[in-house]
Design a protein around this nucleic acid. Sequence first.
DNA 1: TGTACATCAGTGAACGCGCGTTCACTGATGTAC
DNA 2: TGTACATCAGTGAACGCGCGTTCACTGATGTAC
Lengths: 205, 205
Amino acid sequence: MGKKNNYHHGDLRTALLTAAEEELLEKGVEAFSLRGVAKRAGVSHAAPTHHFGDVQGLLTALSTIGYQRFIKAQEQRQSERPADPKNQLAAAGLGYIDFAIENPALFRLMFGSKRPDKSDEALSAVSTTAFNKLAKEVQQVTKLDPFVDESAMADVLATWAAAHGLAELISAEQTGRIHILQHANKEERDAILLNILMRAQTSDT
Amino acid sequence: MGKKNNYHHGDLRTALLTAAEEELLEKGVEAFSLRGVAKRAGVSHAAPTHHFGDVQGLLTALSTIGYQRFIKAQEQRQSERPADPKNQLAAAGLGYIDFAIENPALFRLMFGSKRPDKSDEALSAVSTTAFNKLAKEVQQVTKLDPFVDESAMADVLATWAAAHGLAELISAEQTGRIHILQHANKEERDAILLNILMRAQTSDT
DNA sequence: TGTACATCAGTGAACGCGCGTTCACTGATGTAC
DNA sequence: TGTACATCAGTGAACGCGCGTTCACTGATGTAC
């Protein structure tokens, strides 16, 4: 660590990933280009090939990093909330939404694009980790293992869909008509979202 | 109506929209191209300009049609379910999900892309109609006008997010790990989804 | 410390491609008389 | 019914552009002795 030799750029791989993230944020998934990334990193447009093979390779690596930060965003919110299972599960939802708002294009790359290679080992490993984390937290609430009990798996889906729906709608700026979100301060907004996330956790029937 | 003069193609506008939908379905939003649409319609690649001005015009028109079908899909499900407000609201959610599964790329164009011109009159009118329909149905359940009462607007958001989250996750094929969905027949699947959609309607607290 | 050599990260020119848009045109249809 | 003319939908060639990928290369770094 701490290597900062700066001939041969030293850490172009990391620099390219950072540049790719900026490119994605500004241009969106649709207009993302490899040449744009290289330009942004101040490097020849052929350089990325050396590190990622092709565009797909870069997007796959970016998606993988996205999942790592996605999980961290959830843990961050969880560390700020009460330790009981229901609050922890809802807090993970808040982190889920935070991530989508802060990284709208990356979020869509991860969940809505076919460009990253989902059979990539690192990517599928980290997305599985994210899913298992959710399943484990649902299990803390229901006391049932979702991989065994069908109603618990339905709770997983319900919780996931609530967080994902809020994340998509808010980060895609579809919630302009929801005035309570537009005019709320941070605390009020979190309270509204937590209320909605809590609803999904258990079924009436 | 019934005009079927087929010189000068007659109804190229409609034919182009149909072709555009196929193009979108096969290529996705990211790889959609005007030339591809023209080729699919068996027409010169300059022809679409005459009807839609540019790509954005075509995508805006397509998005508008999408909303019309989106609303119809909801009405279809509602006509098959009990008439009480809770069932009607949940049934609209089922239609929401149907639409996303049948038109995954169009769905993403409507809710997740910046390419259509959202300030277009026809488009914003029909998307407002869709939103107001949801608000009205929530009002039937809560007996409160969401445009007046904040808790009812929170119910709107909750209901919307549940349907939208399920729609996105299922149509983007993210639910491979949810075995109860993979192995369910149509009735079982609907029951699971209805249960989840119902959760969002009202708050515990 | 010094020399020779292998490694490998990054360069820049070149490729072929598909894209959106423009523009002068063609030729069928509709209208006036 | 017939002729002259205007309209307008669709054509096809041409434009300039940015893209991803390839390839022979350069030149700094690391290693062997």
